[in-house]
């Protein structure tokens, strides 16, 4: 039972407005797509499911379970899963073990630098409820409060078999077009930012202009902006400039492209 991947516990999704405020490229829902579009989407999903680059975030424990998964013992390249070294190129963010407040900040920054569709896997009990480190001032308890998590692997430690199982489940979900948790970050950015601000203080913000991206890519929803995102604007105008002082990032020079 412990090795069984649990479906992430996410809030009931709010109603979303496809196309958002009418800017950028709209994201049509499944019903209104043309046949041509549907075939293309299915083909893209087919390819996405068979080519996954994993960024391992291993500051907690459990990194030792991954070498057998990747290398000759189980060889995940058989199903097209390869380790990657930068968030820009990666599709999956695999987070092993506990996250302290300090590392959680880095995880959020890495997550925002990844390009969608992107998937987050929580590895080990610590990402679900804090695990054996729950009674601590410095470790966060639930990963899916701060970034949208696709799947969790329960257990302490999950064995490579469990990692494989969750990756196969993710492949199945992507193939069926179900693994869309990353869009939730755009649609309900206020919720995630609120939780982040609760830990890091009201001055917290990241170099990535998530609201702008949500508008541009058509993932703008009623939950994108709210009381928490208003704090971003109040914190000295440009959110990016503030964050730059603390985290010099290349995302600053970036601009969005469709």
């Amino acid at each position: 039972m412990t090795d069984k991947p649990l479906k992430s516990h996410v809030r009931p999704p709010q109603d979303t407005m496809p196309g958002g405020a009418g800017q950028g490229c709209p994201a049509p829902d499944a019903q209104t797509r043309s046949i041509w579009r549907r075939i293309m989407d299915d083909f893209a999903d087919h390819c996405r499911a068979r080519s996954l680059f994993v960024l391992h975030y291993c500051t907690g424990c459990g990194a030792i379970e991954l070498p057998p998964t990747i290398t000759s013992r189980f060889d995940m390249e058989r199903v097209g899963i390869t380790p990657m070294v930068t968030p820009r190129q990666a599709d999956i963010l695999l987070i092993t073990g506990y996250l302290s407040l300090k590392t959680l900040k880095r995880v959020i920054l890495s997550y925002e630098q990844m390009q969608g569709p992107k998937y987050v896997l929580g590895f080990g009990s610590c990402t679900i409820n804090g695990g054996m480190y729950w009674n601590s001032y410095a470790t966060m308890k639930r990963l899916d409060q701060y970034i949208p998590t696709d799947l969790f692997i329960a257990g302490c430690m999950p064995r490579p078999e469990a990692v494989q199982q969750v990756l196969l489940k993710l492949i199945e979900d992507i193939d069926a077009g179900r693994a869309n948790a990353w869009q939730d970050y755009y649609r309900n950015y206020d919720f995630y930012l609120g939780n982040q601000q609760r830990l890091f203080g009201a001055g917290w913000n990241t170099p990535t202009d998530v609201i702008g991206e949500a508008r541009h890519y058509g993932y703008y929803g009623p939950g994108t902006e709210g009381e928490h995102t208003r704090l971003l604007a109040e914190g000295g105008g440009s959110a990016a400039r503030l964050a730059h002082a603390e985290y010099p990032s290349t995302a600053l020079t970036g601009r969005i492209k469709s």
Partner: peptide
Amino acid sequence: AKKTQISHG
């Protein structure tokens, strides 16, 4: 087929 894209100029 990535749905978002960052460019640096």
